[in-house]
Nucleic acid binder design. Structure first.
Lengths: 338, 338
DNA sequence: CTGCGGACGGAAACCCCTTCCCCGCACACA
DNA sequence: TGTGTGCGGGGAAGGGGTTTCCGTCCGCAG
């Protein structure tokens, strides 16, 4: 059964295409009540389903919103996506999702594909890389904006467009200060590769604040920016702990994300290093799925869903473009740094 | 800067629209090499970006795939989405995502919206509800299929179309048998409301297998189908445990999902009930994010990402529609039922 | 030299809507 | 009664591509 077209509906109702369109697809001009009834009946009879593609073409507005994330199965991004999706729905838009597997080139491709589909706006969530690696994405976004689209970044600015800024520096600083306030002085940072800007921001802010407060950051360990990276670093951390004189105050490891912290703790447990007795661990993000972890993880809560919805509202609302919004955060000290 | 149209490219290259189209958008007929070069150069000069909407209209094929999940921030669904997204990308399609918040009506709306956007196929993931609640979705899906679309369900069949079946019954049965083989006999099931079919399937299969193997299912507790539901049930489970004569063999609670199990354990811990010493707990799904939980959760691993990609391949491949594929599983006994 | 087939370009129909603009009509007012 | 105004309806021009079909030109064989 071929789909009915609007023309078919108009024919069956004995009205013109224009009238049928006005009745069915929310025009300012509403035809007379009898015509409205006839058209609606005809549409129902034929099982008419409007063709959003044709509508988009005619209206020059697709009702689509492109969302680029680095890994949709990562709770960080799936939370952002949940917020974005809800806000998009509230604005009557559908979400086109791309999950790039943390490949900068795939990010660029996703934006290009979205541009081809004439999305009303695109939201790109995730850490930036080196300027070199970001250049292509920036160019693609700028082209999209130049052609009349809107873009919003969740993370570090790239290209034009608004930015929803996770409180990486302020949050990491506050975490360091909170730990210092508890009397902790001996820190280690566990970060991702230097090209991962989110990791760098958190690392640097934490380190600076820790030192400024009289703390000591003995080492900055670099590993993969993932749970497995944290796990792999477990051996190094264990070695560090074992090199300590027994009975001293345990060190505190700041892992730049919760998932890295969780991987780290898992490995430490296997190696017989107990948290927080032998070493303390803190993370960042406070991802919901991990809140029941034992020991409860000290971390910085950031409003992931809200970041997603903020980004979408900035993208589809009528606010000025080019705005940078840094969201709030909350330091959560729990058992893992007790 | 208004976007360049194909006509503009053609003009600049001094060729016809037809030729430009053939060069840029993968036609079977390729024009002569010189023309190809001219057209490509013109397109590059103008920053031409094809309009996928117009293409979809002309080709009657949108290159879009609709994915409906019940909650994208739930790791169960985000894993499925990751698999689906990857498979869609491999097939050159973009994913339209809808997260429905577990509202059957929102599921129906999502499918309707996807139909309007003329997606090539729609994948609906998540548990079914009562026949009444599913009826509207079924009708919407059938209409979509009748109009030439394809639909695939991840979960229990609804409407026509293929099905990727999670091994709820076989997995729950195997879990029961594995626990019986460890000598466990005294079970409690913690499920969601009866209308949640996934919960029902797992509950019934587990109960039947446990009893068939000489076990005793003392109670089937009903709570919300979520982490918080499991948490809330903690009080009941604790009461049950406390009513036991001390020193006996602990009971085993089968929570029908990992997230419910994790919530339950969290509450039990608060109440001073220790797992597995005082009560054992098993879950279902083996969601990746929770694999570092302590105590390590006994569960049934199901291939979530694979289910997503299978569904997409069934939806966009040329296989026959109406196929039911039950995926495999693996019982994982860990510390929580030791 | 003639005839024929194939390759190659382009004109134009078509995909399905939205919306501008014009027309006819009814009504109000002078 | 003539004219101005407003409203409702429809014709038709896009919106940006794809693809069918047709004409031309070329090479090759007879």
């Amino acid at each position: 059964m071929a789909r009915a077209r609007l023309q078919d509906v108009a024919d069956r109702a004995g009205v013109s295409l224009a009238t049928a369109s006005r009745v069915l697809n929310g025009s300012a001009r509403q035809p007379g009540a009898d015509l409205v009834a006839r058209v609606k009946a005809a549409a129902a009879d034929l099982g008419y389903v409007v063709n959003a593609q044709a509508q988009a073409l005619a209206r020059a507005r697709s009702g689509l919103l492109g969302l680029v994330v680095q890994d949709i199965s990562d709770p960080y991004f799936s939370s952002i996506a949940a917020g974005a999706q809800a806000a998009a729905r509230a604005s009557g838009r559908l979400v086109l999702l791309a999950s790039t597997g943390r490949d900068p080139e795939a990010e660029r491709e996703a934006v290009a594909a979205f541009a081809a589909h004439r999305v009303d706006a695109v939201v790109v969530a995730g850490t930036r890389w080196s300027p070199d690696e970001d250049a292509a994405l920036a160019a693609e976004l700028d082209a999209f904006v130049a052609a009349g689209g809107r873009s919003v970044i969740v993370g570090q600015p790239v290209g034009d467009g608004s930015v929803v800024r996770p409180p990486n520096a302020t949050g990491a600083r506050a975490l360091a200060e909170a730990l210092l306030a508890q009397g902790q002085r001996r820190f280690v940072v566990l970060g991702g590769p230097a090209r991962v800007v989110t990791s760098r921001e958190r690392t640097e802010a934490f380190t600076a604040a820790a030192r400024a407060g009289g703390g000591d950051v003995a080492e900055v360990l670099v590993t993969e920016f993932s749970r497995d990276g944290g796990y792999a670093a477990g051996d190094d951390v264990a070695a560090l702990v074992r090199a300590e004189p027994a009975g001293g105050e345990p060190r505190t490891v700041f892992a730049v994300t919760d998932v890295m912290a969780i991987g780290l703790i898992a490995r430490l447990r296997e190696l017989g290093v107990e948290v927080p007795r032998d070493v303390r661990v803190a993370g960042f993000d406070d991802v919901p799925t991990l809140r029941d972890h034992v020991p409860a993880l000290s971390t910085v809560r950031i409003p992931l869903e809200e970041m997603g919805s903020l980004a979408v509202r900035a993208a589809v609302g009528d606010g000025a473009p080019g705005v940078v919004t840094e969201v709030g955060f909350e330091v959560r000290l729990r058992d893992s740094t007790r």
